[in-house]
Design a binder for these strands. Structure first.
Lengths: 139, 139
DNA sequence: GTACTTGCAAACAGTTTGCACAGTT
DNA sequence: AACTGTGCAAACTGTTTGCAAGTAC
């Protein structure tokens, strides 16, 4: 695969993220280094890179798609307030045998399952969810 | 809650679906009965009805949002080819204790979990996935 | 008459595409 | 020359919004 300068920049930029930036975020960041790069190029390369499996496209977030530098299987937690997307390490979901789950569920649906997404919703600490002590805003 | 004629029509129309129509589908269907209803009204009422918990909005499908007449907890299977969304009955996922899962995962993320979505991806039978006999298209 | 809801059109966000040009081989 | 990738602007999809008119109590 041929990596043009712009393509490499896009991949680099995403890999530098611990979070899950949108195309627009990547574009804005790259613009500061490379003022002539275009949004269309960013979109084109994000699509291409996720087709190639270099990055992962997260379409389950409302609003803009997000891109995930981490390709290996893991789940996500989305804050309902700020929209931030957090990674859930696989060991957190070890109560769940993912292969068993897929084959179990497959018996109930008219088709073949190749993968699944598991997305947790809630409120993140930064947005006011306080667990442990009784410091909630309500009540 | 006050149900205007249009609001009732929208709710009825969705409840008449076994599948998961988009706003546009609902709009097109209602237009045949009520030629003056507007798309904005459909959108407004879909939003309102899902805020009220009368229907469920599915945002994890790429493309247009879909609306689900079934409100009680269940998972979904999306065909990668045709985009159809199928329901997965809860008993199919009984390998998984959903409450345990949420509280387990909560220990690993900076926040509080209120719910989760589980979406299976694959190919549905209508699109050529043939399980059981060895009739696959590949190999 | 006050509050809520509608239809329409315009606005908007996110994404994709047509096209002429630039970069490589 | 043939190919691929780029930048720009325009197009496009899905959704929301401002507003004047309509409806319900």
């Amino acid at each position: 695969m041929n990596y043009s300068r712009q393509r490499a920049e896009v991949l680099d930029q995403i890999r530098g993220h611990k979070d899950h930036p949108t195309a627009d975020t990547i574009f804005a960041e790259l613009r500061t280094k490379d003022p002539s790069i275009s949004l269309a190029t960013v979109y084109r390369n994000l699509k291409l890179l996720s087709d190639l499996g270099e990055i992962r496209k997260l379409s389950f977030v409302s609003g803009a798609d997000r891109f995930d530098p981490t390709v290996k299987a893991h789940y996500h937690f989305i804050c309902e307030k700020c929209g931030r997307v957090y990674d859930v390490p696989m060991k957190a979901a070890e109560v769940l045998d993912t292969d068993v789950l897929d084959s179990e569920v497959e018996m109930y649906i008219p088709g073949v399952i190749t993968s699944h997404d598991l997305v947790f919703h809630g409120i993140c600490d930064e947005c006011g969810a306080v667990e442990g002590s009784a410091l909630g805003a309500e009540v």
